[in-house]
Structures are given as structure tokens and as C-alpha cells.
Amino acid sequence: MFIKRNYIFLFLLFLTLTSGCQATTDELLEASTIAFSDSFTATYPEPNVEAEQVSYYTSEAVGVRDETEYNLILEKDEQLFLLFFNPVEELDSTLNLQRDMEAEQEPLLLETYEGTEKQAYLIISEENEDEFKVIAGIGGAKVSTITVNSNLEESVTVMMEVLHSLSYN
């Protein structure tokens, strides 16, 4: 009987400790908002990854998995990032923002940035219980991904890094 109670106690202790260490959705969204906002004051080195149509900088191990006209599939570890770009659209274009707002009717987060030369946005929606759909864009370029909760902030950082440093070849 004593051993059975110890197992129950240890199990309850484990549940309490692991649930207390997980960030809430609000905390994850707040951290992502900060990563998005901070990206506009960061400086990025020259592009260090060159694809056929575009170049970009990344400090992470983000490689090109596939390339088609105006699209790149990027991969970091096993997470895919879809980069869509339209070289005709300027940095202050709102075309992608308008389309993505129509597609994502009830996002958990919608952040925008309007600078003198750039129009940017971040949309985060719940994909399922443990994942988010993330779309980030600057002008005519955008990146989207599905990410697990624990990688949300890092995913936003990687996406904004690619978008801010994107140049057309």
C-alpha cells in the first residue's frame, strides 16, 4: 500500500512540475510579437544563402529543399518554411497582407508594421492543440510554416531574418 501511494505521489509531482514549465498560449504569442517587433531594429549581414532567384541571410541551419518559380521550400531540422515572393510587388505592398487576412478569419494574433519603406505583418493561428500556423510577410514576400508550440518564437525569428535580408538575383 505504501509503495502504491509513493507511485501516485511521484506521478502527481511529475505532472505538476511538467505542466508548470510549459508556457501559455498568451506567453508564446507575446514572445512572438516581441521577436517580430525586434526584427525591425536588428541589422542583418549580407545574404549567405543563394538560390536561383533570390538570396537571403540566415544564422540558423536553414537550407533550400526545393525551388520553383517564385517559391522556395526551406528546411530547418525537419520543419518546413514556404517562402513565396513576387519581385514585382514593392516592400510597402499590402497585397499578401490583404489575402492572408481574408484566409485567416480568426487568427490568435495579427501584428502589422507600417514603416516609410516597408509594410509587414505577422499572423498566427491555431493549427491544432500543439501547433500554430504562422505567416509573416514583408511587401511582396511571405513565409509560412506550421510549428510546434515550443518553437513558435524561434520560427518567427527565422522567418523575419529571411524576409528582412531577402534580395532578388
Rank of each mutant, 00 (worst) to 15 (best):
E131S: 11
A136V: 13
T116Y: 07
F132P: 02
I138C: 03
L108V: 04
I123T: 07
F132K: 08
L109A: 05
E127K: 14
E127I: 01
G140T: 09
D100C: 02
E127T: 02
L110K: 05
V134W: 03
L109F: 06
S125A: 14
Q119H: 13
A120V: 09
M101E: 13
T116A: 15
T112Y: 09
K133D: 10
A103R: 11
E129P: 01
T112N: 12
V134L: 10
L110N: 08
T112S: 13
E106Y: 12
E117S: 13
M101H: 02
A141D: 04
E129Y: 10
Q119A: 13
E114K: 10
L109Q: 14
E114L: 10
Y113I: 04
E102P: 00
Y113R: 11
K118Y: 05
Y121D: 03
T116P: 00
T112F: 08
A136Q: 13
T112A: 09
A120L: 07
G139E: 06
E114Y: 06
K118N: 08
Y113S: 11
L109T: 07
E117W: 05
I135N: 11
L122K: 07
I124L: 07
L110M: 11
Y113M: 13
Y121F: 15
E127A: 15
I123N: 08
N128Y: 01
T112P: 05
L108N: 02
A136K: 08
Q119Y: 10
G137D: 11
D100P: 00
K118P: 00
E126C: 00
K118W: 01
Y121W: 10
Q105K: 15
E106G: 04
L109V: 11
E111S: 05
G140P: 08
